[in-house]
Each structure stands twice: as structure tokens, then as C-alpha cells.
């Protein structure tokens, strides 16, 4: 029973982690909290749904939707953040302008898709028998979701660690002015950061839609706020911390259900977040981690 719950927590946590990684990446590089991240998460799920219903194979629809999410991310930066950067508006005004973009994305989604719940046609995926592994069982869909999320996080880790782009992103996160003086093209690096962060958030949206086989307008609401708890737990700006925080949240949530505390689950999560913020605002892993990745 507990083994199965922990396993479920692993699946849930992988998606939380994927979402939070993009959330925290933008914070690490730009020091801003991007409240449009959840709207992009939802938009990508709808894009993948449309493509899949139009007959595109699911894996391809997943990748295209993530790419579309990345492009929305670049547009978000151009519209809501770049002009504020140019006039040094601080870190709170961008938080509010990202709410504006979130409202716009939400209204467009609502206009196109309406308020009803939508489902993927899984093409018979649900009939594939569940996999049994000792005391735990899981479906192929769950396994595919887990592996996709982990693969994307590994790719991100490689990009940040070993590519020129990754070095540029880390340089901008460390010190924007010094990076610019050393010849890093700030605007292009920031655009790339937004593409990466938003496509990961979008991928998390598609995977969440597949996990529950349900895509709704308000699916981003819970994860938007839980994502905050994850990045506080991991330390804002720390990619590794966000991954670990995501898995911890997944485990805590499923264990809360197992021990009959499901109604108070979210209060526990936000209570821990609040205490951590007050007692240790740098989180468990601190902000340095992205810079040292």
C-alpha cells in the first residue's frame, strides 16, 4: 500500500518538478515571478489536445505543443517583461504584468474551447494492461509520462551545464551587467531562457492533461500555487532544488491521501511553505544552485 502510494507520488512529483523547473529558471535568471507560467501550461495542454484530435500522433503533438508553449513564452517576455526591463521597473511590476498576460491567454483559451472539460482520444492506450512490478502497478501511460518528464529535465540539466547557451544563461543569472560586458547578447539569452522555461511548463501541462485524461480551463490553478511551494522548498532559482522539491511534494500529497489527511493536504503543503519562507527564505538548496549548475 505505502509502496504503491510512494510510486504514485513519483509520477505526480515528476510533473510537478517539470512545471517548477521552468518557474524557477525564470526567477533564477531574471528575479521575477512569472504568474503566466500556469496559463502557458494550460494553453499547451489545449494545443496538444487539438493536434491529437486532428489525428497527429501523441508524441509528436506533445513536442509541437511544447514548442508552441516556448514561443508563447518568448512573446510573453517581449510584451510583458522586456519593456519593463528597459526601464528598470524592479521585480514586483513584472509579476503584475505577467498576471495581465495570464488573463489574456485564459480569455483566448476560453473563447476557443469554452468552459467544458475535454478529453484526449488515447487510441486504445487505456486497454493496454497495467504493468506489475512487485508490490506496485502502473499503466503504460503513467510510465510514458514519468519517462518524458525525467528525460526533459535531464536535457535541461545538460543544456545548462554543457552548452554555450547554458553558460550564457548562467552568466546572465549571476550578473546581468557583467555578462553583457563580456559579450553575452542579453536579449537573446533571455528569450532562450523563456523558450526553455515555457516549453517545459507546456510539456508539464500536456502530461498533466494525459495523466488525468482531462483538459480544462482551470487546470493550471492548483499547480500555479503548488509550484510556488515547490520552488520555495527547493530555493528560488535553484533548478536542482525545484526537481527535488517537486518529488517531495508528490510524495507528501500521496502519503497524505494514504493516511487519510487528504482534505488537509494543501494546508500542510502551504503551511510548510510559509514556515520555510519565514525561517529560511533561501529554501533547502539556496539560490546559488542555478549559478553553479
Amino acid at each position: 500500500m505505502i509502496a504503491q502510494q510512494l510510486f504514485n507520488g513519483l509520477f505526480l512529483g515528476a510533473v510537478y518538478a517539470l512545471f517548477a523547473v521552468g518557474y524557477t529558471l525564470v526567477f533564477g535568471v531574471l528575479d521575477i515571478l512569472n504568474l503566466a507560467h500556469a496559463a502557458i501550461f494550460t494553453a499547451a495542454a489545449f494545443v496538444a489536445l487539438s493536434l491529437a484530435l486532428a489525428g497527429m500522433p501523441l508524441p509528436l503533438a506533445f513536442l509541437v505543443a511544447a514548442a508552441v508553449a516556448g514561443i508563447i513564452g518568448i512573446l510573453l517576455d517581449r510584451v510583458a517583461f522586456a519593456p519593463l526591463r528597459a526601464r528598470n521597473a524592479g521585480t514586483l511590476v513584472p509579476l503584475i504584468s505577467s498576471i495581465g498576460v495570464a488573463i489574456i491567454i485564459g480569455a483566448i483559451m476560453r473563447g476557443i474551447y469554452g468552459v467544458d472539460e475535454r478529453h484526449f482520444t488515447t487510441g486504445g492506450l487505456e486497454t493496454v494492461p497495467a504493468i506489475r512490478l512487485g508490490p506496485v502497478t502502473f499503466t503504460t501511460v503513467e510510465l510514458a509520462i514519468f519517462l518524458s518528464a525525467v528525460a526533459l529535465m535531464l536535457v535541461l540539466s545538460w543544456v545548462l551545464r554543457s552548452t554555450t547557451l547554458g553558460r550564457r544563461i548562467r552568466a546572465v543569472a549571476e550578473d546581468r551587467i557583467a555578462a553583457a560586458l563580456l559579450g553575452v547578447d542579453l536579449e537573446r539569452t533571455i528569450a532562450a531562457t523563456f523558450f526553455i522555461a515555457s516549453s517545459l511548463g507546456g510539456a508539464a501541462g500536456v502530461l498533466t492533461g494525459l495523466e488525468y485524461n482531462s483538459v480544462t480551463l482551470d487546470m493550471g490553478g492548483p499547480i500555479e500555487l503548488k509550484g510556488l511551494a515547490v520552488i520555495i522548498l527547493g530555493g528560488m532559482g535553484s533548478v536542482t532544488g525545484a526537481v527535488i522539491g517537486g518529488f517531495i511534494l508528490g510524495a507528501v500529497e500521496t502519503l497524505a491521501v494514504a493516511y487519510g489527511a487528504s482534505a488537509w493536504r494543501d494546508a500542510i503543503v502551504f503551511g510548510v511553505m510559509f514556515v520555510l519562507l519565514v525561517a529560511r527564505p533561501t529554501g533547502l538548496f539556496g539560490k546559488r544552485a542555478l549559478r553553479q549548475a
Binding site: 521575477i32 502551504f270 519562507l277
Partner: peptide
């Protein structure tokens, strides 16, 4: 707490209140 951290802590407080109202 200042800036973004104050915003997040108070958002968390709001969620705790909402869960309490629910339960």
C-alpha cells in the same frame, strides 16, 4: 520578508485560509 517573498508567503496564507474554510 520583502518583495516577491512577502507576496508568496501571503499567497500561501490565503490558501491555508481557503483550505480551512473548505474543511
Amino acid at each position: 520578508l520583502r518583495g516577491v517573498f512577502l507576496a508568496i508567503a501571503t499567497i500561501g496564507f490565503g490558501e491555508i485560509v481557503r483550505v480551512c474554510a473548505n474543511n
